[in-house]
Amino acid sequence: MEKNKTKNRREFIQGGVRLSLSLALGGISGMAVSSAIKDDYVWQIDPFLCTQCGKCATDCIMAPSAVKCVHAFDLCGYCDLCGGYLKPDANEQSTAAENQLCPTAAIERKFIEEPYFEYHIDEDLCMGCGKCVAGCTSFGNGSMHLQIVHDICLNCNQCSIAQVCPSDAISRVKASEAYKVKGDFTNKPEV
C-alpha cells in the first residue's frame, strides 16, 4: 500500500515536471517562432564590402573553396588590357603563363572582335583567391567579383570564412535571394 503511495507521488511529480518542461519548450519555440522566417539562409559575399584579402581561398572548409570568382558580363568592358587577367606589369598582352594573374589559369580569354576580349571563369579551376577581383576592381570596372557558389557550398551553420573575414563582407542571406552579383552600379551603397 505504502509502496503504491510513493509510486503515485513520484509519478505525480514526474508528470508535473514533464508538463513544465513541455511548457518551457513551447515557450522557447513560441518565442523563436515569433521571429522565425520560413525561408532558409545561405551565406553570401557582399562584393562591395569585399577587400579581396584572400582568406576565402584558405579558410573555406571545402578544398578548393566554395567561393568562386563570378563575372558580371553586364559590367565588363571587354578590355584587351584586362587588370583581372594580366599581371599588373605583364610582359605582353597574351595568354602566356608569365602574363596571367590567375595562379590556376582559371580565366579563359576569348577574342571577340577588335579590340574586345571575353573573359570566362572556369569554376572547376577557380579557387577563390580573388587576385583577379583585386586587379579588376583597381584597374577596371570591377565586373569580376567573389561569390559563394551554392552548388558547392555546404551551407555550414557557421561559415568558417565569415568568421575570419576582415571586412565582414559575408553574411546570411535568404535562400530565395542567394546571390549578390553586381548587376550594375546602382547597387553600390553610399560610401
Binding site: 520560413k38 525561408d39 532558409d40 545561405v42 563570378v70 563575372h71 558580371a72 558580363f73 553586364d74 571577340i112 572582335e113 574586345y116 571575353e118 570566362h120 569554376e123 561569390q147 557558389v149 551554392h150 552548388d151 557550398c153 551551407n155 535562400a175 530565395s176 542567394a178 546571390y179 552579383v181
Partner: peptide, 14 residues
C-alpha cells in the same frame, strides 16, 4: 556577339 549570362547555381531547394 552574344553575351553569356553569369551562372549562379541555386542553393538547395527549401
Amino acid at each position: 556577339y552574344e553575351q553569356p549570362s553569369t551562372i549562379t547555381p541555386e542553393p538547395r531547394a527549401l
